[in-house]
Amino acid sequence: MATFSLLVTANPYSSQGQFSAIEFARTLLEQGHNLLRVFFYADGVLVASRLHAPPADEINLTKSWAKLAIEKDIELIACVTAANKRGIVNASEAERNALTGDNLDPAFEISGLGQLTEAMLESDRVITFG
């Protein structure tokens, strides 16, 4: 049994990378491996918004990640710098930047790039989906 982390940089609804990452995550968990953390960076952070409204017959990627996180106790972390500049904010960042609202999905956390480095040091494998 191995410990994985994922680095996801793909723009959620412009490219396939987030779909690939979710499928990879599900598969490794089915095989009994550990998934320590999914770290979202660059355009990948956009998936952490709870305000996505895809058409009813299409997958909601945020909810797919959230389901995985809740059922399997996986950390979903969006990089604070990448997220804030792309308009993904939690309540405290919204207050700090005097914004009118926050939009982080409750299944996700906002944290620093150090969480990616730590994931590298603590995982057997880190796989990037961009």
Partner: peptide, 19 residues
Amino acid sequence: DYPRFVELTLTFDKSITWL
């Protein structure tokens, strides 16, 4: 398939996604 994809990332010492 995906199960083999996961296995391959463990067969090799590391994975490099060349973006």
